[in-house]
Amino acid sequence: MADRYLEYLSREHARLEDKIRQESKRPRPDEVLIARLKKLKLALKDQMQSWAGTRPSPDRLTA
């Protein structure tokens, strides 16, 4: 379940990166939109790190 959620977050992160790239290529990019997309992308990255940190690592020894 957590793997699927992390995959979803990763896809959304990539989608936002693509939107930022597309908007930046426009002759007059919307800087407010770009800033909003970057904040969303950063929030997704934080969420991915949080979810990855809560998952048990396969190399950790369990009691």
Rank of each mutant, 00 (worst) to 15 (best):
A63F: 00
K39L: 14
A43R: 11
R21F: 13
L42G: 10
R55K: 14
P58V: 01
P58D: 05
R15E: 15
A2Q: 05
Y5D: 15
E31N: 08
R60I: 05
V32D: 07
L9C: 04
K39G: 13
D18H: 11
P27C: 06
I20Q: 06
P58A: 04
K25S: 09
R4S: 15
W51A: 10
D46L: 07
Q22P: 03
S10L: 00
L37M: 09
K25Q: 14
G53D: 09
A52V: 00
E23F: 05
L33V: 11
R11S: 10
H13M: 00
I34D: 02
S24G: 08
P56E: 09
K38R: 13
L61I: 12
K38F: 09
L61Y: 11
L16A: 05
T54P: 05
P29N: 07
L44I: 03
R55T: 07
Y8A: 13
S57A: 05
R11F: 15
A52R: 02
T54K: 13
Y8W: 08
P56L: 07
E23I: 01
E12T: 02
Q49M: 09
I34A: 01
E7C: 07
D18Q: 14
P27Y: 00
D18V: 00
T54M: 15
Q47F: 04
Q47E: 12
R11D: 13
E7V: 00
E12S: 06
Q22E: 15
L9Y: 00
R28Q: 12
Q47D: 07
R21T: 08
L16N: 08
E23W: 06
A35G: 11
R4G: 15
S50G: 05
A14P: 00
K38G: 07
H13R: 02
E23K: 01
Q47S: 07
Y5G: 09
T54S: 13
T54L: 14
K38E: 10
D30A: 12
P27I: 01
K25H: 11
K45N: 12
S10E: 10
K19D: 09
K41E: 07
K25M: 08
T54R: 08
L16T: 00
Q49N: 15
L16F: 04
